[in-house]
């Protein structure tokens, strides 16, 4: 199976919400593909339209315009019955888990199969098997109220996997969990992705989630697709302000320094450049001193990459010297727009 096969294809998808005195463009002319077998991240600020977008992937939300193609079928053309059948192959998990509190863990996991009229015995066997996958086989007869948040999300994942879906849609699935549990759930998702070759779509406003497990990412801003690409690519050279804003939040911290009438640049290192003592060399080679305002490193797709915000010297010539030096070294950088400009 080719990695390049699109399981979802969005063509100029738009969603308008009519409110009393205005029209909200929640999703605005968005087109992209989600590939079979990948973990695809959709990230954006609160209100950007992420939830609306993901809900259009299983037509919980009707597109006002454009089309959503799933596995070759235009969702907009399906009858209600066909839509229900196709939804059985696209499971969804939620921030609030949405388990039935009055049913046992086992009954929750059996539910999608019950709806699909799978024979009872098979329901139970498969449910227990899925609980094993998420590491909760001993909780089969527990009630959701007796479980922790992380355990509840595991049950929700088991429930989602029950019908052996082609895709798993996750809307802020880890947003109500603490960092450690988030890690565990993400590791579980990655594991499932690899073992079952299951396409996973992850909606989040947390960059760290995308960093950890996504192959590709789409950045949504004001309902529009701002940027899309390999996570590593988008991370190391974000092309839009929206992307920089999400990816490089150090810029926001820059306001805290409130330094500066001086020019600042952001230097982004990929794995190779990070091992080079760039700043030390810079100072040694040019004799110009620069001030490091902040620095940050993370691992994206197994490659360490770092970023640094450097304040240039006041003197124009010295500043240009620094810029030229960095340019020469082939290191990725760009000048940060001044405060008051939209960062």
């Amino acid at each position: 199976m080719s990695e390049q096969t699109a399981i979802f294809r969005l063509n100029h998808v738009t969603k308008l919400f009519q409110t009393k005195n205005s029209t909200v463009r929640a999703v605005d002319d968005v087109s992209f593909d989600i590939r079979q077998g990948e973990i695809f991240g959709i990230i954006g600020m609160s209100g950007a339209g992420k939830s609306t977008l993901v809900r259009m992937l299983n037509r919980l939300e009707e597109a006002t315009d454009g089309e959503v193609i799933f596995d070759g079928k235009n969702l907009g053309n399906l009858s209600n019955k066909q839509l229900r059948t196709i939804r059985m192959s696209m499971a969804m998990i939620f921030q609030s888990f949405n388990l039935l509190m009055q049913k046992t863990v086992l009954a929750n996991v059996m539910l999608p199969m019950k709806i699909a009229h799978v024979p009872h015995k098979e329901q139970k066997e498969r449910a227990l098997q899925m609980l094993k996958v998420v590491g909760l086989e001993d909780k089969a007869s527990a009630w959701p109220a007796q479980l922790s948040g992380g355990q509840r999300q595991r049950v929700a994942i088991a429930r989602a996997l029950a019908m052996n879906p082609k895709v798993l849609l996750c809307d802020e699935a880890t947003s109500s969990l603490d960092p450690k549990i988030t890690e565990e759930i993400l590791a579980l998702l990655k594991d499932i992705n690899q073992k079952l070759n299951l396409t996973i779509v992850i909606i989040t406003h947390e960059m760290s989630v995308v960093e950890k497990i996504c192959d590709r990412v789409a950045i949504i801003s004001d309902g529009k697709l701002a940027e899309i690409g390999e996570v590593k690519e988008v991370f190391t050279s974000p092309k839009t302000e929206a992307a920089r804003h999400l990816i490089l939040p150090v810029e926001k911290e820059l306001n805290l320094f409130d330094t500066t009438d001086r020019r600042c640049i952001r230097i982004v290192f990929d794995g190779r450049a990070a091992s080079d003592p760039l700043i030390a060399n810079l100072v040694a080679d040019t004799g110009v001193k620069v001030n490091i305002l902040c620095a940050d490193t993370k691992t994206v797709g197994g490659v360490g990459f770092g970023q640094m915000i450097v304040e240039l010297p006041k003197d124009e010539d010295a500043a240009n010297l620094v810029i030229n030096y960095i340019k020469e070294k082939g290191v990725n950088f760009h000048e940060i727009e001044r405060k008051g400009d939209k960062i």
Partner: peptide, 8 residues
Amino acid sequence: EAAQSMGA
């Protein structure tokens, strides 16, 4: 919503 997403 969960029910709908399961195709109920």
